[in-house]
Design a protein around this nucleic acid. Structure first.
Lengths: 156, 156
DNA sequence: TGCATTTCGGATAAACTTGTATTTTTCCGG
DNA sequence: CCGGAAAAATACAAGTTTATCCGAAATGCA
C-alpha cells in the first residue's frame, strides 16, 4: 500500500463527514458503522484530526465530529502527512535519507518521476472530490444493478 | 515509502551482485559492508531470494551468493512481490479488498491510474537497469566533484 | 444541580516488521 | 577424514503499527 492503514481510515471517514449537512455533527459510532472501521481506533484518528484543526469536535449530547474547513481544502496528501508524518515520500526508495542529484543512487531519477505522480494525485484530490466521485460511482453501480445483477450485464 | 524496508534491502543488495564477474560468489559480509545493511538481516533476505530461485548460494569456503538468472530478467516488481507478498498494490487504497468497477469506491479510478504508473516503473526497471544507472550516476558525480565540491558547480 | 451523552486521553495488548544472536548443516582443502 | 569457512535455520529481542478498553472531563438538558 501507498500509505498506512491509519491514513486510509482517516480518508475514508472524512468522506461521510463531507456529505453531512453543514454544521451538523456525526457520532464516531455512526461513522464507524458506515465505514466498517473499528470504532475505538477511528475515535483516536478523529481526535488527531481534530487536534490538527481538520475536524471540530464537541462533547456531550448532540456532540460528535464535523469538518472544520471546506472539504475542497482537505487534500489526501494533507491527511497522509498528518497520519504518517510529513516526508513520507521524501526519501529515495534507494534508501539514502539524503538522496539528491549529487549522490550516486541507482533509483533516484526514476523514483523522482514516479514520486511527483504520487504527490500530484494525493495533493490534487480533495475530500470534496472523493465525496463527489463516490456519489457518481454509486449512481452508476445502482443503475447497472437495476438491469440484472450478473456481472457485465447487457451486451458485452 | 512505497515498499517495505526488506524489499529495499533486497533491491540494494542485488545491484552489487549484478556487477560481479559472471559466476563469482559474494559473501554476505562483503555485501553488507558495501550497502550498509545489517548483515544478519541481509542474510535472511538473501536466503529468501535464493529459495525463490533469484539467487544461487553455496556454503563453505569460496561460497556465498550470486545471481541465478540474467539481471535483465530480475525486475524491481518481482523483488517487491517476493518480499512484501504479491498483490501489494492490488487492493484499492480506499480499503475494500475487492474493489472493481461494480463497487462504489471514491478512490478507485484515480488510484488505478496511479497504480499502473507504479507497476510500470517497478515492472519496467530491472536490476541490470539499476546497475547501469548507478554506474552512470557515479561518473557524473565524480566528474562534478573533480571541478569543485560546492553544490551546483559550474554556471548555474 | 444532577444526569445522560459523548469525546478525550492514557493504558494495555496483539500483530507485524525489523534487527540480533546462536546453533546446525554443508562444503572445501589438506 | 578432519577442521575451518560459509550459508541455513532457528530462536529471540526490540520497535512500530494496529487495535481495544476504561476512566475522566466536558457538554447540554431537565
Amino acid at each position: 500500500m501507498i500509505y498506512s492503514r491509519s491514513a486510509e481510515y482517516a480518508i475514508r471517514a472524512l468522506i461521510p463527514l463531507a456529505q453531512l449537512p453543514t454544521g451538523e455533527f456525526a457520532l464516531v459510532k455512526t461513522l464507524a458503522a458506515e465505514t466498517g472501521i473499528p470504532s475505538h481506533f477511528l475515535a483516536k484518528i478523529l481526535q488527531d484530526l481534530a487536534r490538527l484543526g481538520v475536524l471540530k469536535s464537541t462533547k456531550g449530547p448532540h456532540g460528535g465530529f464535523r469538518l472544520n474547513q471546506p472539504p475542497k481544502e482537505i487534500t489526501m496528501l494533507r491527511i497522509v502527512e498528518a497520519m504518517d508524518g510529513a516526508g513520507r515520500y521524501d526519501g529515495c526508495i534507494g534508501g539514502g535519507a539524503e538522496c539528491n542529484d549529487r549522490v550516486a543512487c541507482a533509483m533516484h531519477d526514476g523514483w523522482m518521476a514516479l514520486r511527483s505522480r504520487i504527490m500530484d494525485y494525493l495533493g490534487g484530490t480533495s475530500v470534496a472530490d472523493l465525496a463527489k466521485a463516490l456519489g457518481e460511482k454509486r449512481r452508476v453501480v445502482a443503475s447497472r444493478g437495476r438491469r440484472g445483477s450478473r456481472k457485465s450485464a447487457g451486451r458485452a
